[in-house]
């Protein structure tokens, strides 16, 4: 059946509608997870709050296992899913810059918008810088262009690279994630004396 647009069940014109709905849901979850507070976000670097790690790891393992079940039931053709191409060196460089921006500014791009939505002034300044950065990068793009497209590896997956089946990788990720949840919980308890578990 899926993916819906490549298989012609929906036309490409639905892109924006789906993007809008997913964007609303994503923003809601970010805000509900406490991602609009830069203290929560930066906490992962200082070891007093690992909510970022837990939320994203949860998203990864749920999506991973879910996709594999969807594939198994024939609801989704994994071969037709778009995989972002890998440009190794530019991506490593970009993620280092992103990491610095994250810890200095206290937000990543998505979370800065959820913080604006709840009226945070620091997020407003952050997005101002974000737009300035995008503008400068776009204007100076010809300078970076060669580097930007260097080291093209196509779209390799961990399964392709290691030759291990996707099921085993998903299982390993689940185990690693659950272990990470437990370890970070122990660390948090040591760093913060007055911690209470989340209620849901």
């Amino acid at each position: 059946m899926g993916p819906l647009i490549p298989n012609g069940i929906l036309t490409g014109n639905w892109d924006f509608v789906i993007a809008l709905l997913l964007g609303i849901a994503f923003g809601f979850v970010l805000e509900a997870s406490g991602f609009s507070s830069s203290r929560n976000l930066a906490g992962v670097f200082y070891g007093y709050n690992f909510v970022v790690l837990r939320v994203f790891f949860t998203a990864v393992i749920v999506a991973m296992v879910g996709l594999l079940y969807f594939d198994y039931f024939g609801w989704l053709e994994m071969d037709k899913i778009f995989i972002l191409p890998t440009y190794l060196t530019p991506m490593i460089t970009g993620s280092v810059i992103m990491g610095f921006g994250f810890i200095i500014g206290g937000f990543c791009p998505g979370t800065s918008y959820t913080a604006i939505a709840i009226g945070k002034l620091d997020a407003l300044v952050f997005t101002g810088g974000l737009f300035l950065g995008i503008f400068l990068f776009s204007e100076a793009f010809p300078l970076f262009q060669d580097f930007y497209y260097s080291g093209d590896m196509g779209s390799p997956t961990i399964t392709d690279m290691l030759g291990i089946s996707a099921q085993w990788i998903a299982f390993a990720f689940v185990v690693i994630a659950l272990a990470a949840f437990w370890i970070t919980w122990v660390i948090e308890k040591r760093v913060r004396k007055n911690i209470t578990p989340y209620k849901f």
């Binding site: 393992i61 296992v65 024939g74 085993w168 299982f171 659950l178």
Partner: peptide, 18 residues
């Protein structure tokens, strides 16, 4: 939730490959 996640992930290893 931890148990559920492990069971689901473990289930993937058991189901025959499509």
């Amino acid at each position: 939730l931890t148990a559920l996640m492990i069971v689901l992930a473990g289930g993937l290893l058991i189901v025959p490959e499509r």
